[in-house]
Every structure is written in C-alpha cells, then in structure tokens.
Design a protein around this nucleic acid. Structure first.
Lengths: 219, 219
DNA sequence: GCAAAAGTGGACGATATTCTTCCGCTTGCG
DNA sequence: CGCAAGCGGAAGAATATCGTCCACTTTTGC
C-alpha cells in the first residue's frame, strides 16, 4: 500500500557524485520511515544504520538533526503535492482524487501535522524555512481545492472542512504504527473505510474483510 | 470533557499514612497524564515534578519504572471497567452506553492498546501481572457485550467488531495529543462525530461547530 | 502534646546514551 | 591512472537519566 509511489527529493545545492547522491536519498528515505515510526528524535546513529551508511556519512550530508528534518519535511511536502496534483488530473471524480491524495502515505503526517511531532524549537526552524513555507502553502491550497470540489459534486458531506479531513487521515496513518505490517494494513483498510463512510454524503458498501475482535488488535 | 470521572486506584499492599497515600495517588494521576501525552519513557524526575513530589518520594512508592507502569495500567483498566459497568446500568440504549464507556478518557489507550506504547520488555512485564490479566479480561468481555448489544438493537453497524471500535476510539484520543486544550476538544468532538456516523447504521445529525480549516489544526 | 515511626525532597555520584569529530581507506570521475 | 570527493566507524566529549542516601518534616498513637 505504501510502496510504488514516486517520491520527490529536493536537490542538494551543489552537484554530488553519483554514489553520494544515492546515499543522501537513502538517508532521507530512511529518516522519513524512522520519523513516522518512532518520532524525529531517535539517535542519529540509528538513522544511519537504517539507511545502511555510517554516521560520518550522515553528518557529512546533514550537519545536524535540524538539517535532516528540514530535508525530510521538504521532501514529504513535495511528494504530497505531486501526488495531489497527479490525482487531480487522473481522477474524474473529486472524491477519488481526494482519497487517493491522502491515503496510506507516511508523508502526510510529517507534511501537515508538524506541531504534534517536533519539539517547539525544531518547529520554529521548520516554519522559518522559506522553501517549506512555499510548498506547504501550495499543498494546502491544493487540498482545499479537492475538498471543495468533492463537496460541490455532492460526494463529501458539506459540514466538514479541510482540517477535519486531514486530521482524520493523519490519525488513521498514526494507527498503523508499531503494528506488524500485515495487521497494520488490515486495520488501516477497515478504519479508513469506516471513516470514509462518516465523511461521505451517502453510505458506502460493506467493509473489507471481517469484523476485528479485540484480540486481533491487541495480539 | 476528561474531568469529573471517578478514577479507580488499586490499593497498595500495606496501609499508608494519609499523606503518603495522597502522594501516591498524585504520582499515578500525573503518570497517566504524562504517559498518554509523551509515552511511558519520559524521565522519572519529570513525572515527579508533574506530580509535585520529589524523586525520592517517587522511588519510595515505585522501586522502578515498571512498578509505576504496572500501577498505572491497573488503575486505568479498573477505571475503564467501572465506567463501562456504570454506563451499562445507567443507559437504556446500548449505543449510548458504548459511546459513554469509550469517550474522551485517556485511560483507554493505556488500558487496551499496550503494544503500541511500551517497549517489548515492558509489555512482557505487564502481560505477566495477574491482576492486570484479570481486569483486562473482564473489561474486554464487557466491551464485547456492549458492542453486541448495540448491534442487536440495530444502532451499530453489523460488519464491525469490538476491535474496530476500540481502535478508532483509541485513535481519536491520540489525536488530541499536543494540541492546545481547547482546540483539542473541538477537534475531538468533530472527529468523533464523523467516526460515529461511520459506525452507525443510520447517519446522525449535523456535526458540532463549523468546518475546520487546515489553518485551524496546524495553528 | 510528645516521641517514635513514617514519609519527604532533592543533591549527588554512578551509569548509560547520544553527539560529533577526525582520519585512514575506498570509490567514482575525468 | 591520479586525485578529489566520499566513506565508515572508533573514540572522546557532552548530556541525560538513574537511583541512593540522609538531614529534615509530618502524621499517628498514646
């Protein structure tokens, strides 16, 4: 569910050697994954390990944690924006475009719900970054457009706002954390379907799979 | 929303001096709050500070972090169980009893979704505690009963299980984290109403308040 | 009231974690 | 092939956290 997406990575200022470029991307990818799973303050060494590089390499590319966070957030926002635009072009129905834009991507939380994740000091640094401000603004406008379009066409209930929608998706994503991969996906699919039924003007079809017991979700 | 509930605290083995008893309760209360907000591995000193006691006092009552966690989980489970039973007795309608049992209490996450919160080693310790096993079992049975009753009476959709319901409420709670108190409550109310509409057999009334914008939830 | 028992706070040394630099070795590039 | 760019990870510095200890305060039983 979370793979196969094209991921956008901001280019570093100077031209890098090919292998260095690869390493940089591996680091950012690992950091996105690690941040969404464990929060942004796990040890730098752990991030390096997950990326399959040495700490030295990590510090070469990102002089400190904030620099890494900035890169990760930039990348996540850009990825989300690209996806939202693609969805808007491809899908004839605004509802489908909206769902496709927001479904199952770890980037969503990082991209839009910063204050829940980062320490205040870091949040400041992120807000201050002009590139982030720019993409973030565009992305927010894009989602607003989708939400309004979906309401116009009568598929999305009229009494919700973009904030409601984003918040709910962000929660659904959060809910997969720390679950075994397969269970996480089942749980996500079902919760998502229920929430979508709450967001739709008209009720959708039966939920996928069978009812989850308490034992299912608590192992 | 989260106050005014009667909270159940497991009695310590030996009789304590009155002030010691008060301190113990303050510690557990602070720990519930801190755990749900920041996870269970914040510094012991911080927990003591939040409880308004010295670290020495904390260590006197709970020789290590695990002992504190056990006490907190026991208390949370007991509180949830008491609430569910009370709701079942008071409310004529199973749907109302179910919602009332699960709404807006920080105990829910701690009580039922342990594996997401604790390190594996700690999870083992918790599972091993016989008192916890006992209350936990009763609580799960109680919620199962409520869910089935609500489906019987035709208010809760038939294709969800107890696990689905608990997971969703646990997410809604999680979503209040780190938000300013007032915003957190508005967001919770609205998300909860949307999710409930997804869980109901028939759509409920209009959502409380006005649509949330992206700016609302990202400050 | 008063003395003994129980409880308290928080400074402090021990320990564990995490950061960050540095440098000898490797690798892609022209 | 030469060499600049990049790499890994050991190691010392800096920090964070733990958990004990004890002089002082509060409650309780009489």
């Amino acid at each position: 569910m979370t793979e196969g997406w094209e991921v956008v990575t901001a280019l570093p200022p100077v031209r890098l050697r090919a292998d260095a470029r690869r390493n940089r991307d591996k680091i950012v990818a690992a950091a996105v994954h690690a941040f969404t799973e464990d929060g942004p303050y796990l040890p730098m060494e752990e991030i390096a390990r997950l990326a399959g590089v040495g700490v030295g390499t990590l510090y070469r590319h990102f002089p400190d944690r904030d620099a890494l966070i900035i890169a990760v957030v930039q990348g996540s926002l850009a990825t989300m924006l690209a996806r939202a635009r693609a969805a808007m072009v491809d899908e004839p129905c605004a509802w489908d475009a909206l769902i496709r834009s927001m479904s199952g991507s770890p980037e969503l939380r990082l991209a839009l719900r910063l204050p829940n994740l980062f320490q205040p000091a870091t949040t400041e640094v992120i807000r201050a970054d002009p590139e982030i401000r720019r993409i973030r603004g565009e992305l927010m406008a894009q989602i607003d457009t989708l939400v309004q379009a979906a309401q116009q066409e009568g598929t999305l209930r009229a009494d919700v706002g973009t904030g409601d929608v984003v918040h709910l998706f962000s929660l659904l994503l959060q809910g997969m954390q720390k679950m075994p991969r397969e269970l996480g996906e089942v749980v996500y699919e079902r919760s998502c379907a229920i929430v979508l039924d709450g967001l739709r003007t008209r009720r959708g079809p039966l939920l996928p799979g069978g009812p989850l017991t308490l034992r299912d979700i608590t192992e």
